[in-house]
Amino acid sequence: MADTPILLREQQYHQIKAVLARLRMDASAKVVFLVDKDGQEIASQGEVGNLDTTSLASLAAGNVAATGGMAKLIGEKEFPTLSHEGEKESIHISVIGRLLLVVVFDERSSLGLVKLRSKQVSHQLATMFDEITKNDYDDLESPFAEITDEDIDSLFS
């Protein structure tokens, strides 16, 4: 089945941001962000600056999808973590159900520390995300409930 849409309430968003902020500090990371497996960035925390997090999110998801495909070919379900180490900057990605936890770090940290700290928050993030997807959204007013054809046309004017 296709995944259901993600509707993120304000409070949930801030809770996720708080977890990411703590992880960023504990792992001495530059940037930490949470992406869904389809490539949508959910939240980010850290020295984002000029970093193109939208593209990074999409490429991280593509990367996980591709290595997941390789995993299946050799009889594995998926590879739960991926690391790419550069000369100065490195990336660590953990797969948490439908989510990807992406940590960008440099020489101020180490892969071991990032792995450890990422693992420590994985369960918490998974539980939070379960809540998000299980929630009843009847009380949330859809911004599109009363959208008109003129509204849509105006986007392209």
């Binding site: 296709a2 995944d3 259901t4 849409p5 993600i6 509707l7 993120l8 309430r9 304000e10 968003y13 801030h14 869904d36 389809d38 949508q40 959910i42 949330l140 911004p143 599109f144």
Partner: peptide, 13 residues
């Protein structure tokens, strides 16, 4: 899969 963020008031498709 649509992602609606009510905090940053964004919709991604």
């Amino acid at each position: 899969m649509t992602f609606i963020n009510y905090a940053s008031r964004e919709i991604n498709c």
